[in-house]
Nucleic acid binder design. Structure first.
Length: 636
RNA sequence: GCCACCGUAGCUCAGUGGUAGAGCGCAUCCUUGGUAAGGAUGAGGUCCUCAGUUCGAUCCUGAGCGGCGGCACCA
């Protein structure tokens, strides 16, 4: 039997052999480091028989697959520990997720934080026991009956739902046996003690809110302690830049009970909001969008016609008036934009017609969904609808992608990925229409040179969509932009244009947003910059701080000149020491501190200190104003 | 909406069945000091709300509201 190794060398072995034996035949060090094996590209247990010619690769902690193996084993060891400590629980599933794993248990008593500690300790003990982990192939019915007999009903349910041709494998480690596809490490001792149980949470069985709620234990697992430590440091870093915390510290906005899910924007937060909005508005104007504004409250009949009433009624705020009319606060702008489109007769010459609105929407989001600015009940979309012909879908998509990528770049995001979401199970429109819409969007995305990740079944109910996901400064992904092709709404709301032939035709509607919602995007922006905004975005751009009160008059003059040049800042003439002021304003994340004392007043200069730097630069007042004015200009 | 946890000063948090405390912040005064905390004094609290238990509840019990972490949802 010929085994080909990654370096191209071929070794001969008697069949059957195992990955473990092959590793041992290559070297004792490798045998010790081996975690699993890749046979013809398929990840397998080290101890599993190999009985045919194959390309083989020994997986060690240096392999890219190692972390997933480790996380998967950590989940199993957690389940074993939990079962040992709490024999009355039922185990369900425990998959690997980003940065770790979780395991869902069924138990009448809730777990406590102390239980987590106990489980973590027991996991370490199981590792110390170094119990062999062995794969067993079982008959389906026997396996199902076995799990039923030991009271593991969820496991037997999983087995019964597995595809008929699926091999049923169980993994035994010590006194514990679990249904699992594998692969696994050869023994529990191979699992690095670089894991931590992070939190307890509720989760529905099979992710369905109609099912019972299980108790989920989240853990993180790594190849070594340094990696674990780095991960925990990253979490701390993320916590420090939490927009809710910075929003309070920087006096940007607040929330309160009387208006759950709606933002009270303070002066500085609203200035940031306006800066971004004004920037986007200029970019849209340059792209020949028309900006419109539509009613906040619209009779239910329009939402019935659009189909939203049927699907989203319980998530809409409504009001009833004396005349028994029911009004809905608009949860989106699309149907209103169609109303504007329908005014007068549109010609093919009017297309593509790009209609934008900074549309304030209200949605009664489930209470558990609310999260700072990220998910609110009152928000404003940078919404637009492009009414166009089918032939124009491609060129409009390309154009949109260029605009989006340029805007993301100006706002400090260079990286983004694009996901393609196709038809969901519950949807409006014929399959033929969906075929058409999906094909058109895919073709347009190809023409725009986008690398698409597929997101099956995640489209909007009226059409497929592209989702633009940007990556922030600490590597987190945020879905912000979207482009959706819609053949349905123009039909439902009877939008037409007169074609070249003189016939009436349906326009296609492209729903598109770049930021998504201002609220959410500003949260992303705050966390991306950790509050250290570039000058053009900073709500307070500078502070003029006096070294002594003898410089007060000159400081006031500097402040006046900067304000006159269009910058926004503060004058600090308090009788505090300059070092105290530098600290205060650094903590306040003001990008530019201009210190002025007797010397500056006499020489008509300023001493500039930038946030994050200890250096100072002495500049003539006129030069400083010139420099800062230039630097504070928005892009484009 | 569901599961768990939490709710005390502007913020971060101690604490107690007999109506409360720290640090920071804030105010006033002193200090005029050259780039990340000078000093003194002082003002702030319906201990989330409502009911119950109790001689007495911020503390115990229940309900509600809100927050936080997940799940579900996200036009």
């Amino acid at each position: 039997m010929a085994i080909t190794l990654p370096d191209g060398s071929v070794r001969d072995y008697d069949a059957p052999t195992t990955g473990a034996e092959i590793a041992a035949s290559i070297g004792a060090g490798l045998a010790k480091a081996a975690l699993a094996v890749k046979v013809d590209g398929e990840l397998r247990d080290l101890k599993r028989a190999i009985d045919h010619d194959a390309a083989l690769e020994i997986v060690t902690s240096k392999s890219p697959d190692a972390l997933e193996l480790v996380c998967h084993d950590a989940a199993h060891v957690l389940a074993q520990a939990a079962k040992e400590l709490f024999p009355d629980i039922q185990v369900t599933i425990g998959p690997v997720i980003e940065d770790g794993f979780y395991y869902d248990f069924s138990r009448s008593e809730p777990f406590t934080p102390e239980d987590l500690e106990k489980m973590e300790k027991r996991m370490a003990e199981i590792i110390d026991r170094d119990e062999p982990i062995d794969r067993e192939v079982w008959d389906r019915d026997e396996a199902a009956a076995f799990f039923e007999s030991i009271g593991e009903d969820y496991k037997s349910e999983i087995i019964r739902d597995l595809a008929a041709d699926q091999t049923i494998t169980l993994y035994r480690q010590g006194n514990w046996i679990d249904l699992c596809r594998g692969p696994h490490l050869p023994s529990t001792g191979k699992l690095p003690k670089a894991f931590k149980l992070m939190k307890l949470a509720g989760a529905y069985w099979r992710g369905d809110s109609r099912n019972e709620m299980l108790q989920r234990v989240y853990g993180t697992a790594w190849l070594n302690k340094d990696q674990l430590k780095d991960h925990l440091t990253r979490l701390e870093e993320a916590e420090k830049r939490d927009h809710r915390k910075l929003g309070r510290e920087m006096d940007l906005f607040h929330f309160q009970e009387e208006a759950v899910g709606s933002v009270f924007w303070h002066d500085k937060g609203w200035r940031l909001y306006r800066t971004v909005r004004n920037y986007v508005r200029r970019r849209l104007e340059a792209e020949h969008y028309q900006e419109v504004n539509t009613p906040q409250m619209v009779d239910r009949s329009l939402w019935e016609a659009s189909g939203h009433w049927e699907k989203f009624r319980e998530h809409m705020f409504t009001a009833q008036t004396e005349d028994d009319r029911i009004w809905a606060m608009k949860p989106m702008n699309c149907p209103c934009h169609v109303q504007i489109f329908r005014q007068g007769t549109k010609s093919y010459r009017d297309l593509p017609l790009r209609m934008a609105e900074f549309g304030s929407c209200l949605r009664y989001e489930p209470s558990g969904a609310l999260h700072g600015l990220m998910r609110v009940r009152a928000f404003t979309q940078d919404d637009a609808h492009i009414f166009c012909t089918e032939d124009q879908i491609t060129s409009e998509t390309i154009r949109f992608c260029e605009l989006l990528s340029s805007i993301y770049s100006d706002l400090g995001f260079e990286d983004f990925v694009v996901k393609f979401s196709d038809r969901p199970e519950v949807r409006a429109g014929e399959d033929a229409v969906w075929d058409q819409a999906e094909d058109a969007l895919k073709a347009a995305a190809e023409a725009a040179n986008l690398d698409l990740e597929l997101n099956p079944g995640e489209g909007a109910f009226y059409g497929p969509k592209l989702e633009f996901v940007l990556r922030d400064a600490i590597g987190r992904d945020w879905q912000c932009g979207t482009l959706q092709v819609d053949f349905v709404l123009p039909e439902r709301l009877d939008a037409t244009y007169v074609a070249e032939s003189g016939d009436r035709k349906r326009p296609v509607m492209l729903h598109r947003a770049i930021l998504g919602s201002f609220e959410r995007f500003l949260a992303v922006l705050i966390e991306h910059y950790a509050g250290h905004f570039p000058l053009w975005l900073a709500p307070t751009q500078y502070v003029v701080a006096t070294v002594t009160n003898e410089a007060d008059d000159y400081a006031a003059e500097v402040h006046e000149e900067l304000a006159g040049a269009g910058l926004v800042g503060l004058l600090d003439t308090a009788a505090d020491k300059i070092s105290y002021k530098v600290r205060q304003h650094s903590v306040g994340k003001i990008p530019v501190i201009l210190a002025v004392g007797k010397r500056e007043a006499e020489e008509r200069t300023v001493s500039i200190r930038r946030l994050g730097s200890k250096d100072q630069q002495s500049l003539a007042l006129a030069d400083a104003i010139h420099t800062l004015t230039n630097e504070s200009q928005p892009p484009a």
